[in-house]
Design a binder for these strands. Sequence first.
RNA 1: CGGGGCGUAGCGCAGCCUGGUAGCGCGUCGCCUUUGGGAGGCGAAAGUCGAGAGUUCGAAUCUCUCCGCCCCGACCA
Length: 566
Amino acid sequence: MRQSTLFGRTLREAPADAQTRGHQLMLRAAIARPLASGLYTWLPLGFRVATKIEQIIREEMDRIGCQEMEMPVLTPSDLWKTTGRWEALEPVTFRTKDHNGREFMVSYTHEEAVHAHASAEILSYRQLPVMVYHFQSKGRDETRPRAGLLRTREFVMKDAYSFDADQAGLEKSYKAQHGAYERIFKRIGLDATSVESDTGAMGGDIAHEFQVLTDAGDDRIAICSNCDYKANLEKATRTVPSAARTESDAPAEISTPGVMTIDQLQARLGRPADAFLKTVLIKGKDEIVAVVLPGDRNANEAKLRKLLDVAEIRFANDADFGRVGGVAGFIGPVGLRARILVDRSVDARPYVAGANKKDAHLDRVVLGRDFDGERVDVHDVSEGDICPRCGVGTLTIKRGVEVGNIFAYGTYYSDKMNTTFLAADGTRRPFVGGSYGIGIGRAVQTVIETNHDDKGIIWPIAVAPYQVHVIALPSNDEAVRTAADALVGDLERADVEVLYDDREETAGVKFADADLVGIPFRATVSKRTLKEDQVELKPRSASEAEFIPRKIATERIAGAVRRALA
RNA sequence: CGGGGCGUAGCGCAGCCUGGUAGCGCGUCGCCUUUGGGAGGCGAAAGUCGAGAGUUCGAAUCUCUCCGCCCCGACCA
């Protein structure tokens, strides 16, 4: 490919609204361009990367017997209505109607569609298990697209679906996908770790996210310093140190005029945050729920949403406070007329809690004696907490990008859509399923986020837009041009992918662009190298170049590419 | 959807407070010189100042409404 004709120019400066390094480099290196908020066009260089990533995924899916197909972007509303997601996904989806008024969704995902097909194609247990996948655009009207390709409103996802006769089969399919994912991310050059994740509103048992740790990410992951425990903060828990039970007198009211927050209580009473109980009133499905936590812990919204089976956590209003007998700022679990959830971080010792009376708190409130409630796990873990698995290591919290997820949802969709097969014993049984997604654009930018230096991208060769960047210097010199043209032709005949910088630019511009675009090998043909009858070869990731006699340059460069790919 | 910020030439920005000729750097175009790390000279093109309404003799600048974009939070691949 001659760079003089390449569609898409490099940018010397990144647009001011590009925040992360990957976003900046993605734009500067002409990988993709925004068309509107959260909508991106692949430029030729980026499209080649995306295509290579797809091909790697395709090979690994095929290897585990997952069959490629393709379902439409637009899917009819009645399909979604059978699972209730037409309503549930309303705020985050794009919709349209045809000329007869029939409604369609720009598919958010394809579980419904694939179940409809499975139901029609798979009649007997003899046809199971089956795994299928496709690469297809998803539409998600994200309220906040973010960081370039990391979160967009339309993106291509590889989504695979497994259908099994029973739970044991599902677990096998799930393991096969998990293995494929590990191979895929390794080949792409992403250091992705599988992390336990929340199963979301769909329930189900097992789910893993593949997270790439980088500050550009917007997920938070708890990681044990000792064992292999890793979990999304939405799900992460900890070992709560057991406190010795202490005896104490009955609660006593203390006057605390105007003292309404944990911070103020600490200042006023001179005790640490964990000496207090924090009580948060929230709206449940059709009840008011009080969540009781130690003063130094925050409630985890994801955990609460799942526990209460609500889409969104909303705090109680004044009327709700009155209804349960609480006073804002002085709320506590003792005598409260609400469903009470007590976080497992609360232990069996006396705390200071709100007295449900203006300007008053209760000292020496003890769980089990003075109040009680359902014991739950709804707190955020913090840096330094004890690992829940090994009980030895401490947790650190890192940011991550979720490049893929796998999810064993079981019969969730089959039950709702009544998709069944005929089992060996003659009964009709629901498909036991799982879904497995990878975002292509997100993967591309995550590779950049984790493979660059201060000059530009450093592509892993397996996904690089081209393998060798040939630089002619200067390209208007007859001899240089002839030699460079010949090298490019020879390399291409040896099946090497070449980007050829034949532009009439100065050396500085060409080298700076080569570093920015980040093709793994740079081969320079210049007046200087020609004098010695040589070609200069420099890997993007190395600081030193080597000089190769022109006669064997093609062979040597093609060999280097082959070794790098192996 | 809650909170915050920003829209002036392709990109990065100044000008706005205190109303009066629309500017700078880079890029782009032409010619010349240059060619191993974003070169130099001369010349040139390019802006509905996000949109609309208002105030004013006069609005990029003041007021209002709308639109777009970004960041933090919540949600996702």
